[in-house]
């Protein structure tokens, strides 16, 4: 599904290297988690993969189903099946949530050469999906993320993911700013989307999200590299002992 080879990235503005050789392969249907201390490059990885401006790839490659995505525009990557759930979803005053989603869904369909979804079909599907995420009609009508609580914003991200049906989902600190109940709701939303043809990359600081979204593989990232890869137990180890031991081990190696 997603294959990243020796990815080096620097911040254009500061000429500062952030990713220093990331290697990662995510198979279809798998959930991978990336954990790591602040500043290790986790969010940068998600931005680079989704095509945010301001980053320069100096070396390496990233492919989705064998197709190089790094040269694509962000909207092309989305149409190719990549989705990023933002850590800080952006507020867009004056654009209704529903209008936004319908524009996005139909833009992607158009890019893939499919017919646009009719207003009636769209309404039917979105109502159903919103219901399971406890998103009411009012939230669908309101401007995108404007006046939403932290939990509402994250639920709205998951709703977008559910509507766009991507094959590769990246969740960037989706647990930040969530209370226990909201985390459960969001996790249930994600778990409902788990599918043999869909993969996830879950970026988080804390193991607790991984209690709800059970990963197949856990990676530890530090200083722009993946320094250790293991099973779900690795997350528990981090939760118990922190990153210090792992960093020391990697430094020594």
């Amino acid at each position: 599904m997603l294959e990243i080879k020796n990815l080096h990235v620097k911040l254009e503005a500061e000429d500062k290297a952030i990713l220093k050789g990331v290697d990662l392969v995510i198979e279809p249907g798998k959930v991978h988690a990336i954990m790591g201390p602040n500043g290790s490059g986790k969010s940068t990885l998600s931005y680079v993969l989704s095509g945010r401006d301001g980053y320069e790839v100096t070396e390496g490659e990233a492919t989705l189903d064998g197709v190089d995505i790094l040269e694509m525009e962000p909207e092309e990557r989305a149409a190719a099946g990549l989705f990023l759930a933002f850590q800080y979803p952006v507020e867009i005053p004056g654009v209704g949530n529903m209008t936004f989603l319908r524009t996005a869904v139909n833009a992607q369909r158009k890019a893939r050469g499919q017919d646009e979804m009719s207003a009636a079909d769209f309404l039917k599907v979105i109502r159903e999906k919103a219901k399971t995420l406890q998103i009411d009609a009012d939230m669908l009508k309101r401007p995108v993320n404007v006046g939403f609580s932290g939990g509402e914003k994250k639920r709205n991200e998951i709703l977008q993911m559910a509507m766009l049906e991507p094959k590769m989902c990246i969740l960037d600190e989706t647990d930040s700013g969530l209370d226990v109940d909201a985390m459960k709701l969001v996790s249930d939303g994600v778990n409902a989307l788990r599918d043999a043809g869909r993969s996830f990359l879950v970026i988080t600081h804390y193991q607790r999200l991984l209690d709800h979204i059970k990963p197949d593989v856990v990676h530890i990232m530090a200083d722009g590299r993946i320094i250790k890869t293991g099973g779900p137990d690795l997350a528990l180890e981090v939760e118990k002992n922190g990153y210090a031991d792992l960093l020391a081990e990697a430094g020594a190696a």
């Binding site: 401006d53 909207e75 989305a78 149409a79 654009v95 524009t103």
Partner: peptide, 19 residues
């Protein structure tokens, strides 16, 4: 906001118009 819209698959021109 432009990046957010584009990351959802909305092309640049259409995203700019929405904004």
């Amino acid at each position: 906001a432009l990046y957010y819209l584009r990351s959802r698959g909305v092309p640049r021109k259409e995203a700019t118009d929405l904004l």
